[in-house]
Write a protein that binds this DNA or RNA. Sequence first.
DNA 1: ACCTGAACACCGTTCAAGT
DNA 2: ACCTGAACACCGTTCAAGT
Lengths: 211, 211
Amino acid sequence: MAKGITRERIVAAALDLLNDKGMDALTVRALASRLGVGAPALYWHVRNKQELLDEMSTFVMRRVTAALSEIAAGAGWRDGVAAYARVLRSEYLLHRDGARIFSGTRFSDPGVVKAKEPWLGRLTAAGFSLAEADDAIDLVTAFVVGFVIEEQERSQSAGADPGRYSLAERDAWLGEGADLVKAAGHLRDDGDRRFERQLGVVLDGLAARLR
Amino acid sequence: MAKGITRERIVAAALDLLNDKGMDALTVRALASRLGVGAPALYWHVRNKQELLDEMSTFVMRRVTAALSEIAAGAGWRDGVAAYARVLRSEYLLHRDGARIFSGTRFSDPGVVKAKEPWLGRLTAAGFSLAEADDAIDLVTAFVVGFVIEEQERSQSAGADPGRYSLAERDAWLGEGADLVKAAGHLRDDGDRRFERQLGVVLDGLAARLR
DNA sequence: ACCTGAACACCGTTCAAGT
DNA sequence: ACCTGAACACCGTTCAAGT
């Protein structure tokens, strides 16, 4: 019953395995056994493990572009860019270590790269030059990637080593001085709010380019 | 002559090996042989490979904080934050896949975290609230991490697969349509200039918070 | 205290052979 | 066309034993 392995089923199972067991446990052998086949069977459908990882990240990015094509048809540039940032973050957050694994990989699907087209159109229509529009998309993408990498690392090592991020232990670990660092740690609120505030700063910076 | 392995020598050799051969070739065995010892010898000085990676990233971040303590004593907040962003980027660029490997890791040295203290002081003195100052540092860090991950991935896969990033091949790969994406690709200039422009946008966004 | 030799339980990948 | 079985050249890590 497990036969009839396809490229899509392999990618889907790989994403499941990643979420279940984490990056280190995402091995060709474990993936194959989850699909009910031997490890060499996968090499009929996929050139090597790197191609599998590329395919996984292409899958995630296709979901991002699909989610975006439904939104933001008539919205202003600011709301549109904000929606892009939120969708990218939430898709990364769906997968363990998503930002680290899926960022900075080459897409096997031209459609994912082409998805930039309407955004460039919207931004230039709003008054940005083409170069500014391209910079804007790259900047927002870079911000989301960096933000979520830190966010996921934090939540993961909090799970593995609870107390490492408790405020009291952190204060003790920091030792003498560093009062502002400690105070800032106590002010720190949840990821959603911090994301929205920092995204707002980026959008304000982009808005400043329109004058 | 190769004896007298220390933690520092191991970390230095690991960074060398990373630059020479890349992430996949950074194995405990290869590192040991470069130091003229057997692989198990390293486990006397380091708990496991993860601890070695943490130590490497702490080393890199110590260089960042050291470089910063020499600059930016009397500079304004904007120049100071810009200097931080540039130093962080250039230290990441010194190591192959530096941004991906060294971002989002836990520091073994409280001193690295404490280095935020003078920055929080400078930003609050300039009129930011403590929460805004903390956000500002995180935002700039996230931007640099995301930017350099993309930058290093691009330069690495350009080295491995030349032509993959040639404009003509890329245009052909994109196929029909996507005229703005293609035009933006042709406008794209070098990393330094793109970094400075995007950093400027972030700084403008932060400046908007001062009113 | 510091390192070696040998071993354990794994990896990704290849390839002849089966159906 | 699709998959198995067996094998190759590796991994990270442990541990008794040496000095």
